[in-house]
Design a protein around this nucleic acid. Structure first.
Lengths: 225, 225
DNA sequence: TCAAAAACAGGTATAAATACCTGCTTTTAA
DNA sequence: TTAAAAGCAGGTATTTATACCTGTTTTTGA
């Protein structure tokens, strides 16, 4: 397992940063930096040559355009994954945007690192990707979790019109699938009181039944807590 | 860092498997199995007691129902994440379904392991989750990648729970605040049939009542047509 | 073509929610 | 300070939902 070194390719336009990375990685005895590149196009060319293929590519997200055409880390990731599926892409970026991270992962990136991370994390990430195929840290996981299944963010949390604090409280408990009895227990009040609050809620929200209450709560973003 | 042991809780109904896990983990000097549980309900109870809280919960996906009510690993994950956000949930499962995995991650699981993985991977996963907060292996990454783009496909995630076309239809009508009778009229079937479908939905989604169904439908984007 | 899954539909229960009442106390705000 | 609003809680009654059975027919897929 430890006989062969992990072959790493660096794709980063800033020379100084690239050299620094190389220095850090070359210090590790199980890593070999097999090539460097300052832009995306030359990466594809070099890989197409077909020798000394890296296991892992460390790719800067914000690569410079080649000539007139834009060719950033996201596009490069796409191309690498389709043309060289055996090569893993580890993204480096200064940004820390959930949607961006999720998008990159979706396009086949094996992991995401912010540029100001600990040097040791880069090494960890490379090892992790080499062994398991992935490196998802907490930041990336959060990005993924918040983007799985979501499409758009209305986020218009309207301060629920006429609802009182207690009514909102009851509504939230209803939306947690509690029965009237259970809500009463949790709030130390009579089930009849809960009943009364729910009836007020039905009336205020114009709902026919609990289903309407839940939909209202969802639409008003009352379930975030 | 290595002074304190990683406190792990096991949630697994099969005694033999649980004991085996415990044996494997106890062998590691930096891991301490602080409690075991055979079902989801007792986990919440134990955690609510509030002492010896585990850092990480190893949770079997297919937990047995408590009495008549279903309470599987997915629901437990939900509850742990909302009630005990500091505790990380690592899912163990025999299944290897992309949609299922993505769904679990989305619901807050820190990682996913198949039950026939190498014992060493369990240890790796626990360490990884403890240090980085996550453990996403290649299998899980693929699941995530293939699901990140499916946001506009309502049926995608529902398929993980094997909802039939008819069940989805019923679910949508329920979410439009129709009663069982009304749904029956609209679909020209018996109310008893609607009843049956709704019961299947409750079972499949692991919901306690209609509220759960609505929340499920919302989360799965089944209401946008 | 054959077996499995889905859809269908019935019974019998109980649990829960909903629709109206009534009246009382506490909190809030003019 | 005082009236209104909110919260509380009881009653009765009905409707709806849920649980757990049973079974048949239809559709689906290997």
């Amino acid at each position: 397992m430890s006989e062969e070194k992990i072959r790493v390719g660096l794709v980063e336009d800033q020379l100084l940063f690239r050299q620094g990375l190389k220095a850090i990685l070359s210090y590790q005895k199980d890593i070999e930096v097999v090539f460097e590149s300052a832009d995306g196009y030359s990466v594809i060319e070099k890989l197409s040559a077909g020798k000394d293929l890296p296991h892992i590519l460390l790719v800067d997200l914000s690569l410079p355009p080649n000539g007139k055409k834009e060719y950033n880390g996201l596009q490069l990731t796409d191309d690498i994954c389709s043309q060289f599926p055996d090569i893993r892409v580890l993204i480096l970026s200064v940004h820390n945007d959930d949607n961006l991270i999720a998008q990159l992962i979706q396009h086949g990136a094996a992991g995401y690192l912010v540029k100001d991370c600990d040097p040791h994390e880069v090494y960890d990430a490379i090892q992790s990707v080499h062994v398991k195929g992935t490196y998802i840290n907490e930041t990336a996981l959060k990005a993924i979790q918040s983007n799985l299944g979501k499409r758009s963010k209305p986020k218009a949390l309207s301060a629920a019109l006429n609802l009182t604090k207690r009514e909102i409280e009851i509504l939230q408990l209803i939306c947690q699938q509690n029965t009237t009895e259970e809500i009463a227990e949790k709030l130390f009040i009579s089930p009849k009181t809960v009943d009364g609050h729910r009836n007020n809620l039905l009336q205020k929200t114009g709902s026919r039944n609990t289903v309407g209450l839940v939909l209202f709560a969802v639409s008003q973003n009352l379930l975030s807590k």
